[in-house]
Design a binder for these strands. Sequence first.
DNA 1: AGGCCGTACTG
DNA 2: CAGTACG
DNA 3: GCCT
Length: 520
Amino acid sequence: MIPQGSKNSRRKPDSTDKLTDGLFSGVLAIFIETGVSRKRLQVWQRRFEDLGGTILTAAANLLGRVDQIIILAAHEAALSKGINFDRLGSCPNLNFVQFRWVEECLKDGTLLSYEPFLLSASQDEHILSTDDSRLDAQSGPQSDQLYVTPALAIVPDGDLRACSEVVNEKRYDEVSEECTIDTKFKAICEDDMPDYNKHISRPLLELSEIYSDVLADEWRSLTYRKVANKLDRLPYQILSADEVKNIQGIGKSMVDKIKEILCTGQLQKLFNLKASSQVQIMQQFASVWGIGPKHALKLYQAGHRSLQDISEDQTLSPMARVGLKYHYDIALRIPQSEVSEAGSFVRHVLEDLCPGASIIVGGSYRRGNATCGDIDLLITHPDGHSHKGLLGRLVTKLEEAQFLITCPNPFTENITHKVNTYMGICKLPQYTHHRRIDIKIYPKQAYAFALVYFTGNDVLNRRIRYLAKKKGYKLSDQGLFLRVGDNKTGMASEVSIPCETEEEVFQKLGLPYPEPHERN
DNA sequence: AGGCCGTACTG
DNA sequence: CAGTACG
DNA sequence: GCCT
């Protein structure tokens, strides 16, 4: 009596196997961010890329491109706001398509015709507009605006309905109807949650950084950071320390510090530390990639007082030299769109080099953050062997393309083409800043574990690894291993418990599966 | 009192 | 080995 | 720093 394709077959063929080349492989798309909530946009973008699609940004140079490119937007009005038609006019293979097309493709499991979803752009006056404003200049700030613009607390019907559809589409596990709505409301609330407690979490986070950079106390640093994060996600403003004293992870001295902030508006301890010139200088030294608290102290004791000073120090590691050279750029946050574009850039090069290889942008990008500290790329090959020796060749190609920066120092040659890790600097031709980039390549059987690791965040990784240990396992980016001896000897089985997907990894640990955006 | 993640790389 | 880095 |  149950028709085929009913809710009993809730597991779509593609929904769990991200290695299988996706629905959207080879499809190039520009997502117009106007007129759609950030959350929905991210869900679509992630699904689209997970299934092999390539996302271009509106700022991408489309002139002379022969590829078929689709432009996805919420509605026609969004088209005119979100895109500069002067730039696109000369690109012949354009289709303007509703976001709904992506949803329907996902539901259907096949690539549908654009036809029913086409947006008419040709009627729009903007096409013929002679306005010569440069899109480069306006699209960056524009996409930033999207994130700082507070959305409505009460969501219009249409928005909520569409959100629910996305959730429905994603429910390859059982999700009841009311739960769906509930979850969606929650997600929306999170999206628009004000910074109720920043005035408290901020000093704690500063303390965390000083403990880590200057005082070399990893554990206090971690504790402060965890508490700061926890306060940031409280859905109410803390008015009294009583509201905080029962929170897991907040002990006596933390309560005292929160009290002090509530009473006096600041932390004396932090104030004193920040007043110390040694602390200031050491913190600046340690802000350089490749310089930690130990070396920062050494440099200070050697009499150095500025970055200028240490740049002449012969004891600097090659990594620190690179860190110093790009110190300014590295400190900048990277817009989501640029991270995405960097991923697409590498994806194209990789496709040429090693057809069938899969590449995913991990890190805070995959967790859906609006800006990222660096670019994390995760590569594998579904055939189980083509990944071998791939990194070296890829890095060479990317250096030839002048995407990866080949440094004159011994740094790149030394640290660089190791078996599975590249850590370095990159720059997209059309952008101005240099960015930190990490590329990792894993064999197929480690991919799910690597994806969990590379998605993070760091605190989540530590938590689930700790949990795994307590349950008699060892979890790493390479696998999940049964402990053989006791947990102290560190002995673990050679062979990992196989997992094909992230879902399986969490399931094996007895944890509910968190969506990437829930791993912050 | 003692743990708080597990790994890769450098020198 | 210690130090730094990655999530 | 917090937790057991």
